[in-house]
Nucleic acid binder design. Structure first.
Length: 511
RNA sequence: GGCGCUAUCGUCUAGGGGUUAGGACGGAAGAUUCUCAAUCUUCAAACCCGGGUUCGAUUCCCGGUAGCGCUACCA
C-alpha cells in the first residue's frame, strides 16, 4: 500500500526529526490531521524532517481501506513529508529491542492465557498491576515453559516498592511525574510474538532518531511507560509535546461511530473545503499565534508556530451531528452526499469562504469549472471566468457554485412559483407589465452592464416604478429565484437570446 | 475505583495580582444596496465553586466540583 517501504531520501539528522504515526485501523480523522499538521509545522519551522510512519502492528484491525483513507486525507492536505516507514516491516528491530530488555532482566514472560478486552472492565475492580506468579517466575522455569512451546506475552518489569518516580518534561504540560508503583507491567510482546504499540513505537522512535514526539494528549500517561522503555534500552528519550484533544460538542472524543462522517478528513474534502482553509482552521484549535491573527497563510503559520503556543485544554470541534438519513447515504456511497453548511464548525465554514474570496478570479474559476464539469455541465472556461466574480462573494464552498450559478448552466430553468415574479407592493398585472416592458427594451439594448443599467432604470421610470420593483420580476424570470447575483452583470453573461426567451416563458406563466 | 490532565463569552482563544477582561466565529440591530451576499458600524455575551496568601485575586496556593484521558497481549 505504501508508495515505498524505504525512505525516499537519505536520513537527514541535521535538524529536529518528528513523526506522524497513525495506525491504519480507521479513516483519517480531524484530530489525526491536526497532529500531522502540528508535526509538519514544527519540522518546517525548525528546518527539520517530517516522517510518516504507519503504526500497523495490530494485524487484526489493520485494513487496506484505512491505509487508503489516510493517504487520501494526507494527500489532500498537500503538505508532504520527507521519509516514510511502515512498522510491520521493522519487526526484527522490535523483537531485538524486546530481547535486549528481557536479557537485562527488565522484562518477564507472562504465561497467563489471554483474555479479551471485555473481560477487562474498568468498573469497581482495583488497579491491575501484573498477573500474580508470573513476575516472580524463575528464569529457568520461564525458559522451560517457553521451550515447551507454551505461549506467553512479554511484560515490562516495572520497578516496585523502590519509591522510584518516572518523570519527563512535556513541552506543553510541563513537568510530569508518576510513581513507578502506579504503572502496570505493560506488555511489550504479544503471545503471537508481535510487538505492542508501546514497544514498537519506542524502538522505532529511537532507531529513526526522532527528536520530538508531538502527539495527542491521550498518550500523556502512556509516556511514563515509554520513558521506562527508553531507559531500559539505554536510549535518550525524545522530547515530548502532547496536544490537547479535539472533542465533539458533547465533550466526548471524536469517533465515527458516535459522530458520523463529520470527523473524517475526506468529508471536508468532499464538501468543498479548500485544504488551506481546513489546515488553517485546525491550527486554531489548541494553538494560537497570540496576536489575534485568524487567517494565516502557510508561511505565516510556519513562521508563527511554536510548542509554547499550544494550550492544555481540549478543544471542541463545533459541528452538528449529521442526520441518520444523510449518514446512511454517505455510507452507501451511491450518490455524492451533500452536507448542509450547518454540519461543519461555523468558523471552518467562515474561513473557507474567506479563502475562496482571497483566491484570484482565474484560480477560483478554474476550481469551480472542475466542480461544474464534475456535475455534468459543459461550460466554456471563458464564460466561467465571467461567472466567477458574480458568485465569489456568495459561496462558502466550491460546490455551492452548483446552487449559486445553476441558471447559467442549464438550458431550461427548473420550475418555479410564478408568484415569485410579483414585485414588492405589486400584483401579477404589474409583474406582467414589467416583463413586457423589459422584453421590449432589452430587445433593443446592448447586453453590457452600463447599457442594461441605463435601459432598465429608464424603463422603470417610464412605468413609474421603483428600481427594485422593476428588477425583481426580471431577476426571477431569468434566474428562477429571488436571490441571485446583481442583475445587469447576470444578464450580460446570460446574453440576449436566453434572457428574452426566459422573459417570454415568465410572461406565459403569469397568464 | 486508581492514576493523570484540564477549567475565561454558545464555540475557538488573548491576557494576567489592580484591565471598561481583548480578538474571532456565530447571534442581534443598523448602514449600504436592484434581491442575496460581501463590506462597514453598533450591541448582547465569559474568568466553575469554596477557602487561603495579599492592601487587592479571574490570575498564585489548597480543596471541591465537573469534564476528559489512561488504567488491553488497541493504538
Amino acid at each position: 500500500m505504501l508508495a515505498s517501504s524505504t525512505p525516499f531520501k537519505a536520513r537527514d539528522l541535521s535538524g529536529p526529526r518528528v513523526r506522524f504515526a497513525p495506525s491504519p485501523t480507521g479513516f483519517l480523522h480531524v484530530g489525526s490531521a491536526r497532529t500531522f499538521i502540528f508535526n509538519w509545522l514544527y519540522a518546517r519551522r525548525n528546518n527539520g524532517t517530517m516522517i510518516l510512519r504507519l503504526d500497523d502492528t495490530d494485524v487484526e484491525r489493520n485494513s487496506d481501506a484505512s491505509v487508503a483513507s489516510i493517504f487520501d486525507g494526507l494527500n489532500w492536505l498537500d503538505l508532504g513529508w520527507d521519509e516514510e516507514y511502515k512498522q510491520s516491516e521493522r519487526l526484527a528491530l522490535h523483537q531485538k529491542t524486546a530481547q535486549t530488555i528481557f536479557e537485562r532482566g527488565l522484562a518477564y514472560r507472562d504465561f497467563t492465557p489471554t483474555h479479551g478486552p471485555e473481560a477487562e472492565k474498568s468498573g469497581t475492580q482495583g488497579t491491575w498491576l501484573f498477573n500474580p506468579g508470573m513476575r516472580e517466575l524463575s528464569r529457568s522455569e520461564s525458559d522451560r515453559r517457553a521451550a515447551a512451546g507454551e505461549p506467553f506475552a512479554l511484560r515490562f518489569r516495572v520497578p516496585r516498592g523502590t519509591g522510584e518516580e518516572v518523570r519527563f518534561l512535556d513541552a506543553v504540560y510541563g513537568d510530569q511525574r508518576k510513581q513507578a508503583d502506579a504503572v502496570e507491567d505493560f506488555a511489550l510482546l504479544r503471545s503471537d510474538g508481535m510487538p505492542t504499540y508501546h514497544l514498537a513505537s519506542c524502538a522505532d522512535d529511537a532507531d529513526l532518531s526522532i527528536t520530538h514526539v508531538i502527539r495527542g494528549q491521550d498518550h500523556l500517561t502512556n509516556t511514563f511507560k515509554h520513558i521506562l522503555i527508553f531507559q531500559a534500552t539505554g536510549f535518550t528519550p525524545p522530547r515530548f509535546a502532547h496536544l490537547p484533544l479535539l472533542v465533539a460538542p458533547d465533550g466526548t472524543k471524536l469517533s465515527k461511530r458516535r459522530h458520523g462522517p463529520v470527523v473524517s478528513v475526506t468529508t471536508y474534502r468532499d464538501a468543498g473545503f479548500l485544504p488551506e482553509a481546513f489546515i488553517n482552521f485546525l491550527c486554531l484549535l489548541g494553538w494560537s499565534p497570540k496576536d489575534n491573527r485568524e487567517r494565516m497563510s502557510r508561511e505565516e503559520l510556519i513562521d508563527a508556530f511554536s510548542l509554547e503556543g499550544i494550550n492544555r485544554a481540549n478543544a471542541v470541534v463545533n459541528f452538528t451531528e449529521t442526520t441518520a438519513a444523510l449518514e446512511a447515504k454517505a455510507t452507501a456511497g451511491l450518490e455524492k452526499t451533500v452536507y448542509p453548511e450547518e454540519t461543519f464548525d461555523p468558523k471552518a465554514v467562515w474561513l473557507n469562504a474567506e479563502y475562496i474570496r482571497a483566491l484570484s478570479i482565474e484560480d477560483l474559476s478554474a476550481r469551480l469549472l472542475s466542480v461544474v464539469e464534475g456535475a455534468g455541465y459543459r461550460v466554456d472556461p471563458a464564460r466561467m471566468l465571467r461567472i466567477t466574480p458574480l458568485i465569489r462573494e456568495r459561496i462558502k464552498f466550491l460546490c455551492d457554485v452548483l446552487t449559486a450559478a445553476d441558471f447559467f448552466f442549464v438550458d431550461q430553468l427548473p420550475p418555479y412559483d410564478p408568484a415569485e415574479l410579483i414585485p414588492q407592493k405589486g400584483d401579477a398585472a404589474m409583474a406582467f407589465k414589467v416583463l413586457e416592458k423589459a422584453r421590449a427594451v432589452l430587445a433593443a439594448t446592448d447586453f453590457t452592464h452600463d447599457a442594461l443599467d441605463h435601459a432598465l432604470r429608464s424603463a422603470a421610470q417610464e412605468l413609474g416604478l421603483k428600481a427594485g420593483q422593476m428588477f425583481q420580476p426580471i431577476r426571477v424570470a431569468v434566474c428562477g429565484r429571488k436571490n441571485a447575483p446583481p442583475l445587469f452583470e447576470t444578464l450580460a453573461v446570460l446574453g440576449s437570446d436566453t434572457t428574452l426567451a426566459r422573459i417570454d416563458q415568465a410572461m406565459k406563466k403569469l397568464q
